[in-house]
Structure formats: structure tokens, C-alpha cells
Design a protein around this nucleic acid. Structure first.
Length: 378
DNA sequence: AACGCGGGGAA
DNA sequence: TTCCCAGCGTT
């Protein structure tokens, strides 16, 4: 209300508040981090979650977990991680696997380029580093699928390197600690934050960078939570140095630029039966759900007649299927569907039996509603 | 710097 | 509904 009435930006409001409280010392983020260093490390020892990839410091396990955890919640990752490590226990096993099989283990986890890059990187690790992940920040950063955050996480957790691992969690925590109104989605803001964390990492003992980075992340997961108010009354390692808490700005920070809205796409999904088999096809190798399999589908919401025109070849529609919706982050599929009986195998389509549908071909969850229909059908 | 890329849990 | 999650690669 004050903000809107005065028509001032968050930054202006903040500098205004600074003038109202001129006696407050304006600490830098680095100074706040240094002040919290001790409490943070001991808080982490007492509060860290017991997670499968924290059983040891094996770089391969750390790597796989960090890739899976990109934009993905811990609870979602746990079952995938267990199955993955069982099937691909070493870098070599991963480097030699079939991409199709790898996708099958990734099915439902999303952001499938992560899996593709994992295999690419595994081959490089085998050919250039003797099958061991390199204990070098720049070498890690050069591997496909490993960016600034992941290189920092692997480097510090597996190898003890003093490199920052700043993700969305850490940006949320530290923007509140600093009382900063800068947009945490901006890469320049993230870079500054990484620089501040790196300063402090340099002052740590040799075995502490991994714990320090994980402690920051853990604070974001346990105390300074996303979606709603942070739980400042739990023991918080930043309690005494947190500017947002001190000035009651926890609901205003972090600042994130609004996202643009999704577009909606209409689709008509076909479950085409030929004997006991069902038609699927492989998607294009670029773009959304690249290289995965799908039920044949047509653009737009088509009538029974329009479907038959496009199929030809003695196909007949057996029934109209219920509508389904799938929401991606940037697009929304509104699907209608038909159960179709094919008179012959249709060129360009692949006919799979129920077992192959379940065990062999990776089909993304966007088609889960129709897949389920199929299972209850038989 | 902006955009494309999954899926699901929670408010 | 909207938000946001242990982000990265491409343009």
C-alpha cells in the first residue's frame, strides 16, 4: 500500500528505510556471511536431512543427485535416484548404456536433456579422465549439463574445493539476509552473490566448503522456505544478521520478475489398436520432449470425421475418449482423444504390445491419462 | 539477456 | 489458479 501510493520501487523504499534508521550499520553480504559462518556450520551438523546421496562423498553419486535435483524436489528425486544407481552404478555403466534405456529410467522426471547430457558427460569422463570425475572446477564446468551451480556443488561436496554452489534456495536465503530488493532471477545478481559466498569459502578450513554450501541450501529448505512465510522462529543460523527479518521485509523479499503466461495448444490424441498392439511414434530429436515416444496425435480438436480423413486406410473410430490436460511450465496441452481400430499397420507408426509400452519405450507423463486408459481397457 | 525445457506438490 | 523447485544450454 505504502509502496503503491508513493509509486516508488522496492529499492527506493529500501534506501528510504535506510534513512529512517541511519544508526543501523549497513553490512555487506560477505560480512553477514562471515558473522554467521560459525552458527551456520554447527546448525548444519545438528539439522541436516538424512538423504541417500549424503551417505558418502562419492563424486558419481553426488553428480547424479545434483543433476536430478535441478529444478526438481528432493522427494521426487529419491525413488529415481535409487533405481538409477542400481541400474547404472558407475560412470562406465552410464557411458555404455543405450540412450533409450536411460530415458526409460528418467521417464516422468522431466527436463530430458539432463539425461542426454549425463550420458554425453559420462563418455567424456571415461575417455578423458579415466572414469573418475575431475576434481577441478573448470573441468567440471566444461562437462555437458554441468553449469555454475552444479560445478560448485560437486566441486565443494565431493572434492572440498572452495567454490560457491548458489541455487534458487541460496538466492532466496541470501537476498533476505542482505535485505536486497534486486531481482534474484537476474544472472548479474546471482554472480554477485556467488562472489560474496566465494569470499567466505576462502576463509574456511580445507574440509568445510561442502558443508558450508550445503548449510546454505539446507537453510533454504528447512527455515527460509519457498512459498509463503519463512520459519524464522525455528533455530535459524542467520537470525541475528538477517536484514529482512530485522526490518520485517520477509514477505517482500525475495523479488522475482513475473513470468509470462503459458500458451494453450489443442491436440487430438489417438489410441490406435491393431490386433493387440498400440501405435506409438518417436518424437523429433529437438524441442519439447525430444526423442521420446508418444501416442500419435494431431493438431487441433478434431471431429471423428476429420480423424478418419487423416488416417485413411480402413481405420474406424471405436469410441471418443475423455479429455485430458497437461501443464508444462511454458505451454498447456488440452487434449481430446479417440480409440481407433486400424485396418492395417500405418506407415510411420510403430506398433508395440503392452509389455513394450511399459518396459521399453519412454513415454512422458504428458500422455499419462491416455496410457492409464489403455491399461484399464485391456 | 531472454527463452525453451517437465512435472508435481502446496498455498 | 499460481508459485516454485539443489538450473542449463541456446539464441
Amino acid at each position: 500500500m505504502y509502496k503503491e501510493e508513493m509509486n516508488v520501487s522496492g529499492a527506493d523504499l529500501y534506501s528510504g528505510l535506510q534513512k529512517i534508521f541511519p544508526d543501523e550499520k549497513d553490512l555487506t553480504l560477505t560480512e553477514r556471511l562471515e558473522a554467521a559462518r560459525g552458527p551456520l556450520l554447527s546448525w548444519y551438523q545438528g539439522n541436516k536431512r538424512d538423504l541417500p546421496w549424503r551417505e558418502n562423498q562419492d563424486a558419481y553419486r553426488i553428480w547424479i543427485s545434483e543433476i536430478m535435483l535441478q529444478q526438481t524436489r528432493v522427494e521426487a528425486v529419491k525413488p529415481y535416484f535409487a533405481r538409477f544407481m542400481e541400474c547404472f552404478p558407475t560412470v562406465q555403466a552410464l557411458a555404455e548404456c543405450e540412450e533409450e534405456e536411460l530415458f526409460k529410467y528418467w521417464e516422468g522426471l522431466g527436463y530430458y536433456s539432463r539425461a542426454r547430457n549425463l550420458k554425453k558427460a559420462a563418455k567424456i569422463i571415461v575417455s578423458q579422465y579415466g572414469g573418475e570425475l575431475p576434481a577441478d572446477h573448470r573441468a567440471l564446468l566444461a562437462l555437458p549439463g554441468i553449469g555454475s551451480y552444479t560445478a560448485g556443488a560437486i566441486g565443494s561436496i565431493a572434492f572440498g574445493l572452495p567454490v560457491p554452489a548458489v541455487d534458487g534456495n541460496v538466492m532466496r536465503v541470501l537476498s533476505r539476509v542482505a535485505g536486497s530488493y534486486e531481482d534474484i532471477l537476474k544472472q548479474a545478481v546471482k554472480k554477485k552473490t556467488e562472489a560474496a559466498v566465494e569470499e567466505v569459502l576462502k576463509t574456511l578450513k580445507k574440509d568445510e566448503p561442502g558443508d558450508f554450501n550445503q548449510a546454505l541450501i539446507e537453510t533454504g529448505a528447512i527455515v527460509c522456505v519457498p512459498n509463503g512465510a519463512p520459519l524464522c522462529d525455528l533455530p535459524c543460523p542467520f537470525y541475528t544478521v538477517c536484514e529482512a527479518r530485522k526490518r520485517n521485509l520477509i514477505s517482500a523479499i525475495p523479488v522475482k520478475a513475473p513470468k509470462k503466461k503459458r500458451k494453450i495448444e489443442e491436440k487430438t490424441v489417438l489410441l490406435v489398436k491393431y490386433g493387440d498392439k498400440i501405435a506409438i511414434r518417436k518424437r523429433d530429436d529437438t524441442g519439447l520432449l525430444a526423442s521420446l515416444y508418444e501416442f500419435p496425435n494431431l493438431e487441433g480438436k478434431l471431429s471423428e470425421k476429420e480423424v478418419l480423413e487423416r488416417l485413411g486406410g480402413g481405420a474406424s473410430v471405436e469410441e471418443k475418449l475423455p479429455e485430458a490436460k497437461h501443464i508444462f511450465s511454458h505451454v498447456e496441452w488440452h487434449m481430446s482423444g479417440y480409440l481407433v481400430k486400424a485396418g492395417e499397420e500405418i506407415p510411420g507408426m510403430l506398433f508395440a504390445d503392452r509389455g513394450e509400452l511399459k518396459e521399453k519405450y519412454p513415454i512422458p507423463n504428458a500422455f499419462a491419462a491416455y496410457r492409464k486408459l489403455l491399461e484399464s481397457q485391456s
